[in-house]
Amino acid sequence: MSTKNWPLWEVFVRSKNGLEHRHCGSLHAADEEMALENARDVYTRRSEGVSIWVVESKHITASNPENNGEMFEPAQDKVYRHPTFYDLPDEVKHM
């Protein structure tokens, strides 16, 4: 009987050059080579990609939604980071 289970990998696919890799799901595989091959068969059966990244899930550090307040709220009151914060005379059409 199996003693060790295949680890989980996250799959990122670039759909065409010029676009970023995008997370599209995960899968189990024994090693990185198999993860890449499985990712091709599971996530790009209809030419959805020109490049694949696989990362073992345990290597991803993620923010915790419970801390979203202190993590993301500081950006909310910094409206001066957006162009719409600044007043311009109506005559200036493009800036």
Partner: peptide
């Protein structure tokens, strides 16, 4: 097969 793949890895 799963065990062998893991051992190989």
């Amino acid at each position: 097969v799963r065990d062998a793949a893991m051992a190989h890895a």
